[in-house]
Amino acid sequence: RMRTAFTSTQLLELEREFSSNMYLSRLRRIEIATYLNLSEKQVKIWFQNRRVKHKK
């Protein structure tokens, strides 16, 4: 599987969303994925990984 290289714009938006809410509803995940031109799965995994990073 290929590793996703997020653009700086995508990362900025993902981080902004994360700062306001660490957990996404499915609807919000779809909205963000569509807006950032990513798959729902990519957004889901990014949030999972970001939560782990946040815990450390």
Rank of each mutant, 00 (worst) to 15 (best):
R1V: 11
R1S: 12
R1M: 13
R1G: 10
R3Y: 14
R3N: 15
R3W: 13
R3S: 15
T4Q: 12
T4R: 08
T4N: 14
A5M: 11
A5R: 06
A5D: 15
F6I: 09
F6N: 00
F6S: 04
F6P: 10
T7H: 04
T7I: 03
T7M: 03
T7P: 03
S8R: 09
S8G: 09
S8I: 09
S8V: 09
S8D: 13
T9I: 10
T9G: 12
T9R: 09
Q10E: 08
Q10F: 04
Q10M: 03
Q10C: 04
Q10N: 00
Q10W: 03
L11F: 05
L12M: 11
L12G: 12
L12Q: 15
L12T: 13
L12A: 14
E13W: 06
E13K: 02
E13R: 01
L14T: 01
L14Q: 00
L14S: 01
L14A: 00
E15G: 00
E15Y: 00
R16Y: 06
R16E: 12
R16P: 05
R16V: 07
R16M: 08
E17V: 03
E17C: 05
E17Q: 06
E17F: 05
E17D: 00
F18Q: 01
F18K: 01
F18S: 01
F18C: 02
F18A: 03
F18L: 01
S19V: 12
S19P: 04
S19E: 14
S20K: 04
S20D: 15
S20G: 09
S20M: 09
N21M: 01
N21L: 04
N21C: 09
N21Y: 05
M22F: 06
M22D: 13
Y23P: 10
Y23R: 06
L24C: 11
L24S: 02
L24Y: 03
S25L: 04
R26W: 15
R26G: 15
R26L: 15
R26M: 15
R26A: 15
R26S: 15
L27Y: 15
L27M: 13
L27S: 08
L27P: 07
L27C: 07
L27K: 09
R28P: 00
R28A: 01
R28L: 03
R28W: 04
R29S: 07
R29F: 01
R29D: 01
R29P: 04
R29H: 03
R29M: 06
I30K: 04
I30F: 04
I30A: 09
I30T: 07
I30C: 09
E31G: 02
I32Q: 02
I32Y: 02
I32K: 04
A33T: 00
A33M: 05
A33C: 04
A33W: 03
A33L: 00
A33Q: 06
A33P: 00
T34A: 07
T34D: 06
T34I: 06
Y35D: 07
Y35T: 13
Y35W: 07
Y35L: 12
L36K: 05
N37D: 11
N37G: 12
N37V: 04
N37I: 03
L38W: 02
L38C: 12
S39K: 02
S39P: 10
E40W: 06
E40Q: 04
E40S: 03
E40N: 00
E40C: 04
E40G: 01
E40Y: 01
E40V: 05
K41N: 15
K41D: 14
K41S: 15
K41Q: 15
Q42K: 06
Q42G: 05
Q42S: 11
Q42T: 11
Q42P: 00
Q42F: 00
Q42L: 10
V43P: 00
V43H: 00
V43E: 01
V43D: 02
K44F: 15
K44N: 14
K44H: 15
K44M: 15
I45A: 13
I45D: 15
I45C: 11
I45K: 09
I45M: 14
W46T: 02
W46I: 02
W46H: 06
W46D: 00
F47M: 02
F47I: 02
Q48W: 10
Q48I: 10
Q48S: 14
Q48L: 10
N49T: 12
N49M: 12
N49Y: 07
N49H: 08
R50Q: 10
R50K: 14
R50H: 03
R50V: 03
R50D: 04
R50W: 01
R50F: 06
R51P: 00
V52C: 12
V52I: 12
V52R: 12
V52N: 12
V52A: 14
K53P: 07
K53W: 12
K53F: 09
H54A: 11
H54Y: 11
K55T: 10
